[in-house]
Structure formats: C-alpha cells, structure tokens
Simulated scan of single mutants.
Amino acid sequence: MTATTGTDDGRDDRAELARLLPPATGFDLPPGRHEHHRERLMNQIDHDTARARESVPDRVPDRVPDRAPARPRLLRPSFLAPVTALALAGALVAGYSAQGGGADAPGQAGSGASASERAGNAQPVALVLNRISDAAAKSEVGPVRDDQFLYTRSQAQHGDLTSGTLVTTPLAEVETWASQKPGPQKKLGLVRQDGSTLPVNAQLGDTEGTAPGIGRPTYRWLATLPTDPHKLLARITALTPKQEDQEHDQAVFDEIGGLIGGVMPPGTAAALYRAAALIPGVVEVPDAVDAVGRKGVGIARVDTRYSWRSEWVFDPETLAYLGSRSFLTEDTEMGRKGALLGADALIKSAVVDEAGVRPQG
C-alpha cells in the first residue's frame, strides 16, 4: 500500500523521508515484502500527519492512506504500525499480518498442541473446504449496487518489533467502507480507527484512479472471476506477483485469504474455497482460534522459507468465516516459535448506502 498526497510539496517531503530512512537489515525477507512494509510505514506517517492536522482549526487533512481494499486485513497494518525511525526495520517484519493466523502462540487462547502436532493431526483438506464451499454458496447477501459500500468491522492485533523484542499489540477495532463504483476511482472509501475517520485515496501512481481488481476487489469485479476452481486458481495465480525466494503457492494462498470473508458473490466465494484445496501444502487444523478467542475449524499453510504459518478460521457449526491468525513455526531472528505475527476477527460485514454510516443491527 502506498500513501498518496495532495500536493507536490507533500510528494517531495515523502520522497526525502523515504531516502533518509535506513535500509532494512537483519531479516531475510523477499524483496516484495520489504517494499510492502516500507510503504506501510509511509502510510502510518501520512496517517499521523492527518490526525495532527485534524487538531488545527480550519485545516483539512490532505495526506491520507492510499486505498481501501475490501478486506480489513489489508488495511489494518497501515494504522497499527508505530512510526519511528526504528520502525522501518521493525515494521518490515513486525507488522506483518499475513492473511491468516496459526497455531496458538504461547499464552494465547486455545494454546495446547504445537503447530507441528496440530498439522500432523490434520485431515484431508479438500473434504472440509468442500463443506465450507457449499455453505458459502448458500449466502443470500447481495447483489451489491455500484453506488453502495461494503462495510466491515473487525478486531485485529499484530506483532511489533520496534522495541527490539517481538511483542503483540492490543486488539484494536477497525471499520472500513469500500466504494463499489466501477472504473478507476480516486476516492475509494473510508476507514475508522482510534476515533479517527479518514478517506482512502487511490494507490500512488494511479493518477487516473485505482481500477477494480485483485487490489481493489469490488463485488462486480469478483463476480467476473471464473467459478471453475481450476480456472479460478489459474487466474489468481496469474494475478499474484512472484517474489524472489518466496514460495509462490504461499503467496497465492495468502492472496485468496485476502479475498475471503465479508460480502462477495456466493458463487465466487464457493469457488475460492475449492480453489484453495488445490494448492499444495494446504491442511485442515481442527482447533483454530481467531483474534478474539473464538474456536473453529482452521485451514492453514506454512511458508517453509520464512517459517510463517497462515491460518483461516471458520465456525465449527455454520462454517462461516471468523477470522485469521499468523505465527512463527520455528525460532527465528524475529522471535521464538509460536510468536504471534498477526490475528484478526471479523465481527460484522454488510452492505450500506453511505460511507461512514454503520449498518442497522
């Protein structure tokens, strides 16, 4: 995610700050993840600048986060990562909130069996993903009009290394309103956190606005995806950037994790789960836990290159999406095995007619 600014001076300031910040050291991340987290840090700087300007009379914040993807997991890190010079190196790994969560970190709700023990007890994943797919196909939410907004409310936390030690931030509530307007848009919605409500602008470089796509998955765009699982997996794979030394299968799994949950065409949701079953290394984890401690059925995959486990959590009865977690599967320079990297819980998703307005009920 890349923050946009409203003036040339803002862009110059941002470029100068990015130039002065020290390069990331000490952690072996794929190149794409370095740039991703550098952009997240710049987003947080923009966010803090906007909040500071809100306290000045007759001033309107002109520097805001860049875009509002439909999934809250993609928004949260930009507002949770702390802003210090040290944060650049730390945020490159600490705020990583991969699109899932894993076996319970020490001291977390539901802790017990280790990640390896839980993975060893996993059942054939296609069976449970087919059941989740069937449940998703029965959704009666939608269709969504182009003039409406997709609303999500969630609780999230992430790992933080800015103190030099990996710690977990407190849970924070995040609300988003994602615009469904077709075509490239410069104003993509709103995000509300910590008492602040800010607009979300097009991605940096999208001078004509950000178009619907994998980074801005509108309901209409999601409805254009193929519903044959093999064709859908091929499409998502093609849309997922390849990063040097990173498992592409894991990147695709996390990309799908960024799409699921919330409001989407039932046929697309059903196909996404069946497509996930085709990815090598995906397993069922029967005792998964989301960010607020709700227990359920987990769908997980481990990136063995970086020892990160991503896990999606589903209600054991209804198979509705609950949330996700990610954690370390081995001792690394980031932290000890089991250390929590990110967790979230989807509390509410709905369709609303106006940005900033919560759904009834």
Rank of each mutant, 00 (worst) to 15 (best):
M1N: 09
G6M: 08
T7K: 00
T7A: 00
D9S: 11
L17I: 10
L20F: 12
L21N: 01
P23C: 11
T25K: 12
E35S: 14
H37F: 12
I45A: 07
D46W: 02
H47T: 14
D48H: 12
T49P: 04
R51Y: 03
V56W: 14
V60A: 15
A68W: 00
A68N: 11
A68L: 11
P69K: 07
R71L: 06
V83S: 15
V83E: 10
T84A: 10
A85H: 13
A85D: 15
L86S: 12
A89K: 09
Q99A: 15
G107F: 08
R118A: 10
A126Y: 06
A126S: 14
D134N: 12
S139Q: 11
V141R: 14
P143M: 01
P143N: 06
R145P: 05
Q148G: 02
Y151E: 05
R153P: 00
L161P: 02
G164N: 02
G164R: 04
T169R: 13
T176L: 12
A178L: 03
Q180T: 00
Q180Y: 00
K181C: 06
P184D: 03
L188Q: 06
V191Y: 05
G195V: 03
S196H: 15
S196W: 13
L198F: 05
Q203A: 10
L204N: 08
E208V: 12
G209F: 06
I214Y: 01
G215H: 00
P217H: 07
P217E: 01
T218W: 00
Y219L: 04
R220M: 10
L222S: 01
T227W: 08
A234V: 02
A234E: 11
I236T: 00
T237S: 13
A238H: 07
L239V: 07
L239S: 12
T240E: 01
E244P: 07
D254F: 08
L259A: 06
I260V: 15
G261P: 00
G261T: 01
V263L: 12
P266I: 11
T268F: 09
T268M: 09
L272E: 00
A276G: 08
I279A: 02
P280D: 13
V282F: 04
E284Y: 02
P286W: 04
V289K: 01
V302Q: 03
V302H: 02
R305I: 12
E311I: 01
V313Y: 06
D315F: 05
T318N: 09
L319Q: 04
R325Y: 05
E330S: 15
G335W: 04
L340G: 03
D344N: 14
A355K: 00
Q360V: 15
